[in-house]
Design a protein around this nucleic acid. Structure first.
Length: 338
RNA sequence: GGCGGCGUGGCCAAGUGGUAAGGCAUGGGACUGCAAAUCCCUGAUCCCCGGUUCGAAUCCGGGCGCCGCCU
């Protein structure tokens, strides 16, 4: 808990109480239309956009990530877009720091933060904080991953998970033995800090919450979204996705980089290389985009206090945001906010 | 019209006598520094009818449908 940190606090004129600065989260599945809605909101309510999309932080990846256009970005200030090259490692932790810094500056200007994007973990990291740990040690991670690969070859894919269970049974119980990512991460925390991931997490409990939050989810519904994805995917091709992918490759960004494995980029590279047809790639891209949208919903669904809105009814959103901004912080809230 | 092949869950597809592999899609779920990632769960009585058999998706007969070749 660091609630009396350097976060700016405005003074409520009526109650004279220190209020947490307001953040409006505009999330939803890909292709829901949240970005353009967020821009409209920011224009109406003296706001600025802070990105909450894990792929839009990368430079040179514009079309495939559906990044706001240059034109849109002149309408409203946008933050935490294009902050790294595709070959730089990026993470939720780094994101949270950058996004909160951007928010602090926006609040200092007395503007409203519109946190916009569909990366659930990033939104949570921004709103509720992450456990404080040492930076990821690439060497350690590599060592663990190699060990895992070796174990798997020897037909004992659950070896690392078993070791985790020895030292941190609680964490192991929550992680499926096949989930190598999380098993490795928990072991990293253990080795780096000597503490169990499960206890560190429990102590944290996502209670680092410096903002007063209105959480919106923009969602046109399953069917409508599928259609939008269909159209949007075709539009990306027309907008020059192939050219963009070629450009990335020419800049030397290889296929194995994380962002180059993102939806669209992983599909179009084989087309550019001549090892797949465009028709094939498009089909796969649409399917994967739909599946991604489903996972995004699964993330958002269980969150408390999320208001779902249809992008076709923007007035309802404007109204809600207006009401939110008129009210003031009534003190501490209970329960997780993201 | 003749000959041959095929007909298994939404799609692809194993299985040729003992009560239906797998992959993909779909849907649900997890998620505390790789998250557009990673991972978990998720369905059929085998085209129809009749027969053989203790027992048939698997064998036989008939029908329907599709594909190929031939005339």
């Amino acid at each position: 808990m660091n609630d009396d940190s350097q976060e700016p606090r405005s003074l409520d004129p009526k109650t004279q109480v220190r209020a947490r600065p307001p953040v409006v989260v505009v999330t939803g599945p890909t292709g829901s239309g949240k970005s353009s809605l967020a821009i409209e909101l920011a224009e109406r309510f003296e706001g600025e956009i802070v990105n909450a999309d894990s792929m839009q932080v990368f430079r040179y990846m514009d079309i495939g990530t559906a990044k706001p256009s240059a034109d849109e970005r002149t309408r409203v200030p946008h933050h935490v877009f294009d902050v790294v090259d595709p070959d730089e490692p990026y993470s939720a932790g780094r994101y949270a720091g950058e996004a909160r810094t951007a928010a602090r500056l926006i609040h200092a200007r007395d503007h409203v933060v519109f946190l916009t994007g569909g990366t659930g973990l990033y939104i949570r990291a921004f709103l509720d904080g992450l456990i404080k740990t040492e930076n990821v040690d690439p060497e350690l991670r590599k060592r663990l991953e190699e060990e895992q690969a070796r174990a798997a070859e020897e037909g004992d894919a659950a070896r690392l998970h078993r070791r985790l269970a020895e030292f941190d049974a609680q964490a192991a119980a929550k992680i499926h033995p096949n989930d190598v990512r999380r098993t490795v991460r928990a072991l990293e925390i253990l080795e780096q800090s000597g503490q169990r991931a499960s206890s560190v997490r429990e102590a944290h409990g996502f209670r680092d919450r410096p903002f007063r939050v209105l959480h919106l989810c923009i969602d046109p519904g399953r069917e409508a979204l599928a259609e939008r994805i269909e159209v949007r995917t075709e539009a990306m091709i027309e907008a020059g996705l192939l050219r963009e992918v070629r450009g990335l490759r020419e800049r030397g960004y290889a296929a194995d980089l994380k962002p180059m494995q993102a939806i669209g980029y992983r599909h179009i590279q084989p087309v550019v290389d001549g090892s797949d047809t465009l028709a094939n790639a498009l089909e796969a891209m649409k399917v994967d985009t739909r599946r991604f949208a489903r996972r995004q919903r699964t993330w958002i669904r269980p969150l408390p206090d999320v208001h779902w809105h249809d992008p076709g009814q923007p007035d309802a959103v404007f109204e809600r945001v207006g009401r939110f901004l008129e009210t003031h912080d009534e003190g501490t809230e209970a329960g997780p906010s993201s």
